[in-house]
């Protein structure tokens, strides 16, 4: 069930749009050694840390589906992964942890590992990843490292703009930009 401690729904929508634009426009440009950063994966995880399951699920599924249509990979793969991750992370936040940015980063890293691994598994199952074991070294690990760096940056930006509104923090600091602007 969603709670009153969540940020405004507008923040979720704006986050989704920004993530989509970053993935479609910026990500192909900043490819490193064949690894493309997954902005959408990172933003969905961060959103799930600060919102309840329903919002996170809708955002994750919708973004995943759009990107599945935009790429040549298995259609529905990213939607499935983001759905699972959004539910898992948003459920974890219900008072399980009591930490700050360090714990957030640990959750983010764990979710990124799970997400990138799940994608490789789904690709392997449908035959789109014929070199599964090699891909774990050549794709999954570099992608996790790249996404983690981007995740740290986006998490700091998110907390600065929206404030720490995660469930465990009791509703945030009240000094975020969105609260000042009454969004």
């Amino acid at each position: 069930m969603e709670t009153a401690q969540q940020p405004p729904v507008g923040v979720v929508i704006v986050s989704a749009v920004i993530a989509l634009v970053l993935q479609l426009v910026l990500a192909p440009v900043i490819t490193l050694f064949g690894v493309v950063p997954n902005f959408v994966l990172v933003v969905v995880i961060i959103t799930a840390m600060h919102n309840g399951p329903v919002r996170s699920l809708v955002m994750g599924f919708a973004l995943g589906l759009v990107l599945d249509f935009c790429s040549l990979g298995p259609l529905g793969a990213l939607a499935l992964v983001l759905t699972i991750l959004a539910y898992a992370v948003s459920s974890l936040n219900k008072g399980v942890f009591t930490g700050g940015i360090v714990v957030d980063m640990i959750i983010l890293l764990a979710a990124l590992i799970a997400g990138e691994f799940l994608i490789s598994v789904i690709y392997a199952i449908v035959g789109a990843n014929p070199e599964f074991l090699l891909s774990l070294v050549q794709r999954v690990l570099p992608a996790i490292a790249y996404d983690a760096i981007i995740g740290l940056i986006l998490m700091l930006i998110y907390n600065a703009v929206v404030g720490d509104t995660s469930f465990r923090s009791g509703g945030g600091t009240g000094r975020s930009l969105t609260r000042k602007l009454h969004l």
Binding site: P53, V54, L57, F61, L65, G76, A79, L80, T83, Y87
Partner: peptide, 15 residues
Amino acid sequence: GGVLAIVLSFVSLGL
């Protein structure tokens, strides 16, 4: 959330 997660997962698997 649980029901929605199951529904969306099945939709994804169907796709």
